[in-house]
Design a protein around this nucleic acid. Structure first.
Length: 424
RNA sequence: GGAGACGUGGCCGAGUGGCUUAAGGCGGCGGCUUGCUAAGCCGUUGUACGUUUAGGCGUACCGAAGGUUCGAAUCCUUCCGUCUCCGCCA
């Protein structure tokens, strides 16, 4: 959510930012509603002040055993007017809040202006192309012949897009999750958390899955819960409504969770194998930072995600999203893409974003500055570190051997066993 | 799922319709003292919104939302949460 005061005072620059995001918002309607709201508040507060003064007089007279009926009659009318205005204020604020929740974050000044993904600049390329000279198999062919997963049975159990991992495939999935968690905890200083995989509407609103993206999520109406599309939701909401001490910042959490996405509107796209799923595993990093440090923390966060890919020896590139491709809540974002030699394409495995105070305002996540001073909103960031399905694709395709087996990188030995690195 | 108890500031805790502007204490912050010394004394204390050149002023907030009343932390209704006991359960 944006600051209404900022919209009021810097209307044109906010308007420009939204336009760069290819969105359109009726700011005139919002400003007008805000003006009405403030007029009503000013009016009702005068009446409440009057009521308080008269009520005190009533109390004094009653204490002195004097008659106060004239005052009571006078205030009865004030009470009615207050009630009317209170109702009006409530209605206006509900309307205004609804509009405010639909306004996307505005891009940071450093985010390149551009219309869509085709204009995203590549900011880093790492690793070398895997081209061994024999015919490369896709992860589907490899997985099937090696018995790593069973899509038909996953479909039978739940439906398409719900993968069943089997044997070494299940172990590899578990190994990757543990490897990434340990890496971020031991090397990058994150604190591990293991959150619920469901969240309520309030939490979903903080991170802005709600109200705009309700159709993308699985809902449990009976209990008014949603399955999380990412651990970002429960982890960011750990400090919802709290006032943290400045000395405690930055807070860095790392969480594994299953993620659930309906992928409505993407039917027929990337339906094969692991490229697009309804349920998948992901290790997520979430940071709560002082506003002054959030962009330095974003660079570090991106580095933490890249370090995973480098440790696994996989070719990747990092792109910076232009304003038109930025997600609803982000002010700046990097995407990490792995090269899948069998698929012969780049696969997005991580998104690292700075939301500035956008989510913090929605969730009332604040901090008290060191040495006192006014409580202020902190900045939230998150990034995948990383999602497993496409990582598994690139890993299998990059480490495949001519005989159809896969020789996993040495760094996974503690998790697979040395002998277990060779998938046959 | 059943029965009961409870929900007050950073924390403890008083408060059953009106000098409550939420007592008192702890903690925090600022100052004084340095013959009460592992201390003592004085002052201060939250959040949001509105308003103001500024200092300030006003309004609201006692789990949440409504209601009764001239006036609600206090009375009524609904909801949420916590705890205890019972039932079920990995």
């Amino acid at each position: 959510m944006l600051d209404i005061q900022k919209i009021r005072e810097n209307t044109e620059s906010v308007r420009q930012g939204i336009q760069n995001k290819n969105m359109s918002i009726d700011f005139d309607a919002i400003l007008q509603l805000d003006q009405v709201r403030r007029d009503v508040i000013a009016e009702v507060e005068v009446l409440k002040h009057d009521r308080n003064v008269v009520s005190k007089d009533v109390a004094v007279r009653k204490k002195n055993k004097e008659d106060a009926s004239d005052l009571i009659i006078k205030t009865r009318d004030i009470g009615q007017r207050i009630k009317t205005l209170d109702d009006k204020q409530r209605a206006i604020e509900a309307d205004l809040n609804k509009l405010m929740l639909e306004i996307p974050n505005i891009p940071h000044a450093s985010t390149p202006i551009g219309k869509d993904a085709s204009e995203n600049p590549v900011v880093k390329e790492w690793g070398s192309r895997f081209s061994p000279g024999f015919d490369l198999k896709t992860h589907l062919e490899l997985g099937e012949s090696l018995g790593l997963f069973d899509f038909p049975r996953g479909t039978k159990i739940a439906g398409p897009g719900f993968p069943l991992y089997t044997g070494k495939g299940a172990k590899l999935e578990r190994a990757l999750i543990n490897f990434m968690l340990d890496f971020h905890i031991d090397q990058h200083g994150y604190t591990e958390v293991l959150p619920p995989v469901v969240s309520n509407a309030k939490s979903m609103t903080t991170t802005s899955q709600l109200p705009k993206f309700e159709d993308d999520m699985y809902k449990i109406p009976q209990d008014e819960l949603y399955l999380i599309p990412t651990a970002e939701v429960p982890v960011t909401n750990i400090h919802q409504g709290e006032i943290l001490a400045a000395q405690d910042l930055p807070i860095r959490y790392c969480a594994y969770s299953s993620c659930f996405r309906r992928e409505a509107g993407s039917y027929g796209k990337d339906t094969r194998g692991f490229l697009r799923l309804h349920q998948f595993n992901k290790v997520e990093m979430v940071k709560f930072t002082h506003p002054d440090n959030s962009y330095a923390e974003l660079e570090a966060l991106r580095g933490n995600a890249e370090a995973i890919l480098e440790a696994l020896g996989l070719e990747y590139r990092t792109i910076e999203l232009v304003t038109g491709d930025l997600s609803f809540a982000a002010a700046k974002c990097y995407d990490l893409e792995l090269w899948a030699p069998g698929e012969e394409r780049w696969l997005e495995v991580s998104s690292c974003s700075n939301f500035e105070d956008f989510q913090a305002r929605r969730g009332a996540i604040r901090f008290k500055p060191e040495g006192g001073g006014k409580v202020q909103l902190l900045h939230t960031l998150n990034g995948s570190g990383v999602a497993t399905p496409r990582l598994l694709v690139a890993l299998l395709e990059t480490y495949q051997q001519e005989d159809g087996s896969v020789m996993l990188p040495e760094i996974l030995a503690p998790y697979m066993g040395s002998a277990g690195l060779h998938l046959t």
